[in-house]
Simulated assay, not measured.
Amino acid sequence: MTISSSPHIVSVILAAGASSRFNGSKITAKIQDDQSVLSHSIATLNQLSATANIAAPVVILGAHINVEVMAITADTPRIINPHWQLGLSSSVKQAVAYAIEAKADALLLVLADQVALTVDDYVGLIEAYQHNGHTSCSFYHQDVGVPAIFIADDFTGLLSIDGDKGAKSVLKRHAEKNSLNILPMENAQFDIDTPADLALWLHQQ
């Protein structure tokens, strides 16, 4: 299925964290067919790019840059976050800066470690956004979250986030104003934070 190519949406995979609970670089851990967590995410977003006619994904790297670069192909655009120690907000800000430079109408934010997400999950999010032009997000663990599509009007708010916080505050403000498309997304609830999470994922494959 191919959906409309407009408006202009860019996608960014956030992968700059220290993975402190994993005791190493979790995004280079192998999860299937010798694919790493990060390369799996890139492959899924590349497939989405072809399906939904959106820009190919950009990856934000940071804490484990030396091994992370080896986990992605040379043709995958990447942004290095030198301030990754400041937390997730620093990567969100770099993603927004990239979207502004690209003159994007909207930004699809993705976490590299949500390995259960499929192209269909992302397509559903894009279709919801294109239906009415509202910020659109996933819903799991009884809360809103990413992946999410943020409209250009959100960029200023995203740039004001500090510390190890993501973009949830922006989503909640939209929810309060009834200007948020919320999609239940069961696959988004599984991410890889610990070696036990990885072992469970491998066992399920």
Rank of each mutant, 00 (worst) to 15 (best):
A95G: 12
M70T: 15
G24E: 11
A18S: 09
S49F: 11
I60H: 03
A106S: 15
D120K: 15
D143V: 04
M185Q: 00
Q35R: 08
L109S: 08
H134F: 14
M70D: 15
T76V: 07
M1H: 10
A116N: 13
Q189C: 09
T118W: 12
S160W: 01
T76M: 05
M185P: 00
V119D: 04
A175W: 01
A71K: 06
Y129W: 03
D121T: 07
C137S: 06
G145I: 11
I79D: 06
S89Q: 06
T118I: 11
A167I: 02
V12M: 04
L48F: 09
I60N: 02
A112Q: 05
P147C: 07
K26N: 14
V59F: 02
Y98G: 04
I60E: 03
Q205F: 09
D113C: 00
A71W: 15
N53V: 00
V67T: 09
L171Q: 03
V119I: 11
A43M: 08
V92F: 08
G17H: 07
S90P: 01
W201L: 05
S5F: 02
L198V: 03
I13G: 10
A74S: 11
L108H: 06
V146W: 01
A167K: 02
T135D: 07
V67C: 10
A128T: 10
H134I: 01
H8A: 02
S179N: 07
K26G: 02
A167N: 05
L109W: 03
E101V: 07
A74N: 14
E186N: 13
D162S: 15
I192H: 04
L109I: 14
S6V: 14
L111I: 06
A55Q: 07
L45H: 13
S36I: 09
V67W: 03
D191G: 03
D154G: 10
A102D: 03
L48P: 03
Q204Y: 10
H141I: 01
I161K: 09
A106L: 14
G87H: 02
G157F: 01
Q114W: 00
S5C: 04
A63L: 07
L109P: 10
A95C: 08
Y122S: 05
I42L: 02
I80C: 14
H40R: 11
V37P: 00
K168S: 15
R78A: 04
Q130G: 04
Q32D: 12
L159V: 08
D33G: 08
L117M: 11
D105M: 08
G62V: 01
V67D: 06
V10Y: 01
D105A: 10
T194F: 00
Y129R: 01
